[in-house]
Each structure stands twice: as structure tokens, then as C-alpha cells.
Simulated scan of single mutants.
Amino acid sequence: MVKFVGMAGSLRPNSYSQLALGLAGDRLRALGAEVGTGLLRGDTLKPSHAEDFLSR
């Protein structure tokens, strides 16, 4: 059996990346794959902004 792991990193609920990850997982499961997914949220991922990196 093929196994896939997907991670979505958006801090916004119902972001497009989370929705796309869910759709991809559904399709892979339908094809017989085992799928694990995870969400990187504020408790596991510190928010950062491009300006923080550009000012260094």
C-alpha cells in the first residue's frame, strides 16, 4: 500500500491550501492509498511576515 502525508500550514481556517489538501487526500484514499494529514496552526507554527525577513 502506498502511504502519503500532507501538511497544510495556513493559519487561516478553511484556507485554500487546507481545502486542496483535503481534496487531494480524498482522491488518494479513493485510489487505495493510506493518507495522513496535519495542520500547522498557531500552537505549533509561529506566525511570520515577509517584512520581518526583509528588514534584516
Rank of each mutant, 00 (worst) to 15 (best):
Y16P: 01
L39G: 07
S17K: 02
L31C: 12
D43H: 03
M7C: 11
A20N: 07
Q18V: 05
R27M: 13
A8R: 03
D52Y: 04
S15D: 05
R12Y: 03
F4R: 08
G42H: 00
K46Y: 02
D43E: 13
E51K: 07
P47Q: 02
S55A: 13
A30Y: 05
F53I: 06
Q18P: 00
H49G: 03
G22T: 12
V35F: 05
L54E: 12
M1D: 09
A50K: 02
L23F: 10
R56L: 09
G9T: 03
L54C: 05
L40M: 15
G38N: 05
T37S: 10
G32D: 12
V35I: 11
K46G: 01
M7F: 13
L54W: 07
N14G: 08
R29H: 04
M1K: 04
Q18R: 14
G42L: 01
A33W: 00
T44M: 01
S48C: 08
V5C: 07
G9A: 11
V5L: 10
M1V: 10
S55H: 10
H49L: 08
V35T: 08
A30K: 15
R56I: 06
K46H: 09
S15H: 05
R56Q: 11
A8T: 14
E51W: 05
L54Y: 07
E34F: 01
L28I: 12
G42W: 00
P13L: 02
F53P: 04
N14H: 14
L21S: 06
L31N: 13
V2Q: 15
A33G: 01
K3T: 15
P13M: 01
G22K: 15
G6I: 14
E34G: 06
N14S: 12
L39D: 02
A20M: 15
F53C: 02
Q18C: 04
G42I: 00
V2T: 15
V35H: 06
G32N: 14
K46T: 09
A33H: 11
T37I: 07
A33S: 07
Q18G: 10
G9S: 07
K3W: 03
Q18T: 12
S17I: 08
Q18L: 10
A24Y: 12
N14L: 11
E34V: 13
A50T: 11
L19Q: 12
E34P: 00
G25L: 09
R41A: 00
E51C: 02
L21T: 13
A30S: 15
Y16Q: 07
E51D: 08
R29E: 14
D52E: 12
L40G: 04
T37R: 06
A20L: 15
G36L: 10
A33E: 02
S17R: 01
L19N: 06
A24E: 06
M1E: 07
L23E: 15
S17Q: 04
A50Q: 07
S48K: 02
V2K: 15
Y16I: 11
G36K: 13
P13K: 14
